[in-house]
Design a protein around this nucleic acid. Structure first.
Lengths: 211, 211
DNA sequence: TGTACATCAGTGAACGCGCGTTCACTGATGTAC
DNA sequence: TGTACATCAGTGAACGCGCGTTCACTGATGTAC
């Protein structure tokens, strides 16, 4: 049978591959359902069912609801951070060759994330609430936000250099401010779209990066 | 008996006054417990008990858990907004007479809110999550955030005038950006205090308001 | 390649517990005369 | 001021339901020879 898939070397998955696939499906389902209903509101039966499995499967892969959630923070957030960092880096790089305004691209990014990726912001809020209520998990979230700033900082530093930004803020502080502003505008746009015009983020950034 | 209270005209509360006092106590308890455990995690028994009443009292004053929460958004958030607007207005007014930097005062405000008022940010996150999951309640939250911007806008506009700010942002947009940044830095400081220095907000503001 | 057995990757019914909601009841406050 | 009755502001035990967790079971996959 000629497969339409380009990559996979063999059609039949080994037991270990199938197990990992199930695990990923369960985590993806958990992200969907928890984004919609919240950590407490999401039932394991709905999560498992939404992935096409029974609740027992969850207990085969995770020790319980709490560990499932922590795993979701670890893997799901990491993937999102990677995506964001890559997208921002690409915007600045392509902008430096074509001469496009990278801030406009970032602003479009806010709009797109607020309007299309409806799960992202609720999940982040859910993670944050979990952290402030479970001191033992705080370290995981702290590490995640630092990872994001770590990934973005060189890009921001390069941009500050390129625009000859004269700022009282260090590159790391500038990165923190940009991320905080980004998340905040995404959230705000969800409850008051008219208060956050498409290009607002771009205008704030161009002022922050001004020489 | 000589009362230590200055204001109340009579010691014995009328039935209606006592009822309103109970209602306020229940709402305050709901704010405490929900901030700690979340909307789903907070049990009505714990809320009522924490206020010194039984669960039945909650059903005498509210139709159910959901309406209690909506009432909390309405009254609790309003009080917080009023406090914030008043504090900010006072900072700018006193600054214009004494010559102090109002931005430094605002920055201290962030620090204080993040470090001492531990309930505020979790409650806001809880409200926001409720809104994105219950479209019928979205209007209440939208109105609240607009009320805050409405209250702050004249103060920000006056500050922009005073500092001769030349900005691509309208006063209302500047207000939105300041509020978003404020909330975001408060939240961020909870999970990564070293990433948000005491005076970071001040330095960002002085750049945003620069001429 | 074939056979026998062991392990794996789940299934799904059952259990127990906690929580939101209801309701019959009660002492305290207010009202009519 | 006193009395009789009605309403108010809660009480707290009971109910029912949903959810997290457990566990005996099962077909499919892997392994040894």
């Amino acid at each position: 049978v000629s497969s339409t898939d380009p990559d996979p070397p063999r059609q039949r998955l080994s037991q270990a591959e199938a197990r990992e696939r199930t695990r990923r499906q369960l985590l993806a389902a958990a992200a969907r359902v928890i984004a919609q209903k919240g950590y407490s509101g999401a039932s394991l039966e709905e999560i498992a069912g939404s992935a096409g499995y029974s609740t027992g499967a969850l207990y085969y892969h995770f020790t319980g609801k709490e560990q499932l959630f922590l795993e979701l923070i670890e893997t799901g957030w990491s993937r999102n951070i990677t995506n964001r960092v890559d997208a921002v880096a690409e915007l600045f790089e392509s902008g430096s060759t074509t001469g496009d305004d990278p801030f406009a691209g970032l602003s479009r990014f806010v709009v797109q994330l607020a309007d299309r990726e409806r799960e992202f912001a609720p999940l982040e809020a859910e993670f944050w609430l979990y952290a402030v209520r479970h001191p033992e998990a705080m370290g995981v979230i702290t590490r995640k936000v630092q990872e994001e700033v770590d990934g973005l900082e060189p890009v921001i530093a390069a941009a500050m250099e390129r625009f000859a930004t004269s700022s009282e803020l260090s590159p790391r502080e500038m990165t923190t401010v940009a991320v905080v502003l980004f998340d905040g505008l995404v959230r705000r746009r969800r409850i008051d779209p008219s208060g956050v015009p498409d290009d607002l983020f771009a205008r704030v950034l161009s002022r922050l990066f001004a020489r």
